[in-house]
Design a binder for these strands. Sequence first.
DNA 1: CAGAATCCCCGAAGATACTG
DNA 2: CAGTATCTTCGGGGATTCTG
Lengths: 128, 128
Amino acid sequence: MNQKIEKKPFPESCRVHLQAIDDTMDILNGKWKIRILGVLSFGTRRFMELQREVEGIGSKMLSKELKELEINELVKRTVYDTKPVTVEYEITEYGKTLHVIIGEIAKWGAQHRKRILRSGTVRKPVAA
Amino acid sequence: MNQKIEKKPFPESCRVHLQAIDDTMDILNGKWKIRILGVLSFGTRRFMELQREVEGIGSKMLSKELKELEINELVKRTVYDTKPVTVEYEITEYGKTLHVIIGEIAKWGAQHRKRILRSGTVRKPVAA
DNA sequence: CAGAATCCCCGAAGATACTG
DNA sequence: CAGTATCTTCGGGGATTCTG
């Protein structure tokens, strides 16, 4: 049975803020996208290089995630007409606008790691 | 010695950076955590309120994600000994250190939305 | 209300093989 | 090399029910 507590639905300003968060997260979904962008932030990469550098990802997933990033114009794919075809991926100018976010994520991660180590306990970054 | 340009596995500095990104993402995994933190950033919330405000989440998922956030000391759970028990969730001081990230995410989302609208096409934030 | 327990399904994602 | 195609498995997560 549905309980109704009916409080104020939610201030509009809050909804907008949350909507914005969702907009971003819809694009950066999947556990690989951020990581892929992280690797690409160091420069152009070929498919195989990415697969090697994004630890644990399979070719199918990599292909799929890259395609999604490309659709959203965050990554650019370039094909070179060599004998065995060569493909390079790089972050677009628009994609670079994400660097602020990724930078903050990296910064926090570094701080967090220090915190974990400092706190004697053998606790590790637990997720699940 | 070796004159050939070695394909270094990956510069150490880069690995550290990527590791930091992973550390953060391991904690903010799942499609709900960021959203939950976003809602909680507006203040203390009860279980049902969260479920209503984090659109689409089920009680099982909400419970699970909250537990994980609690383990990582990003969220604090308080139980009040009322007739039907009352439970409140709030962001911890440590959790607030994530506000920078979440703020940037929201900022980017807002910008992105504008960009999408501006670009005539009916393109919408595509994820998959 | 706050959640745990159950049942169950569908899609994410791995492994493998194949192609231009 | 850079993917695509196919098959299959596994568990995330939804719906529902139950309890303190």
